[in-house]
Design a protein around this nucleic acid. Sequence first.
DNA 1: CCTCCACAGGAAGCGCAGGAGT
DNA 2: ACTCCTGCGCTTCCTGTGGAGG
Length: 432
Amino acid sequence: MLIMLNMHNIHYRQLFIQYSLVNLSETMSSENLFTEHLNKETIFLNRNALLPHYTPEHLLFREKQMENLVDSLAVILRNEKPSNIFLYGKTGTGKTAASKLVVEHLLQAMKSKQGNFASAYMNCRTYNSKYKVLSKAVKELFPKENFLGYSATFVFEKVMEYVNETKSHLVLVLDEIDMIKDLDECVYSLTRANDDLKNGSISILGISNKLNFKDKLDPRTKSSLCERELIFPPYNAEELTEILRQRAEIALKNKIVEDSALRLAAALAAKESGDARTAVLFLLKGAELAEKKGLTKITDKEIELAKKSVEEEIAFEMISCLPEQQQRVLKSIAVLAGEKKGVQSLHGSSREEAVLLSGEVFEKYQSMAKEEKVSIISGRWYREYLNELEMYGLISTIMSGKGQRGQTKLIKVLLDSKKILKACAQTADLTN
DNA sequence: CCTCCACAGGAAGCGCAGGAGT
DNA sequence: ACTCCTGCGCTTCCTGTGGAGG
């Protein structure tokens, strides 16, 4: 609440009286809570440029894809209907940024040409049905009116009416299009709509990071949705370095980040996924760490630390989303690993996390569940959970080799067992 | 070599919740 | 309001695997 308010326009004293029951007069007379931040020297020029939703004015290493997109949409300038386009690529490869940028440029071009062009961007994680997509579109077209609660047919007619009467070309940018439940139906009616339109057109720019999702579609949907396909490959380390350099120039004060640190952030991200978002996140976290410590340089060390904290955040997020029983399994692994580590360090051996046997973990899980008086999942399902935990990168498993009994899995925790326990405890607090 | 042990993971099926169709 | 369908989380049952031990 406090953050939302414009600090320049509000008298601090008033604000505190309004939001606090505590007598703050003493605090106020000595120092405002934000004083430190007001006078603080910052290393950022424009922190926004390092946030996930920032779209740079020039997208590096996507010239070919941009050109293709422009070519496909340029027919609108000649008052023709563009093909539907399907963009595919893993997360953080520039699909969304490229489409937003091209649409933005097209909007400007159409303005200068006095033509009518409309677009609606939506993430289908939220707008996950035909009705929701149409509602969003109609909201973009008639920002002042409210069509809440109208039937799907009515909303659809309204979109058609707008396109027809204003002779507009409407491009629907559907990000994460694979999330739409009735996609076949949705694509079919939007494509078919063009047959009934005398003027203007409706076309779809679909974005997805799952290539195989196309196989599940009706062949007709597939062919109309993928009239044109563009692939966004992951970035390599050099490309990511350049991207980071570009962002750093906008976001950070001159020369504050060391070149080796940039290259490290790029290399770490490239190794994992080739995801620009991750790389930029490493840089952002690194910068924040440096600022907190009052450093004048962002070095490799900050990037290393940033990576670690990002990973921990992700792990924490992941642990908190696990189903209750799976969390219990993970917890019992962590507990057991902790116990074993204690024994190992007594004998002066390695500080690494201990290797556990699948069977003993299951026993531990059972006894812990019994103590807490909660139901116990079967051994089969327990194994299924183990496999998932491995997939999430929380544990690693290998089949036992020599020295162990036959077919069994050897389990190793990949995170510090104490951190796992902490995360489990915190999510348990949240649910209670 | 055979059998047992301790587990892996596939197949089938069950109960339930929630959505779609009528 | 009601069925019907489907997907999910899970259990039960079963076959396969490979070292240990007789």
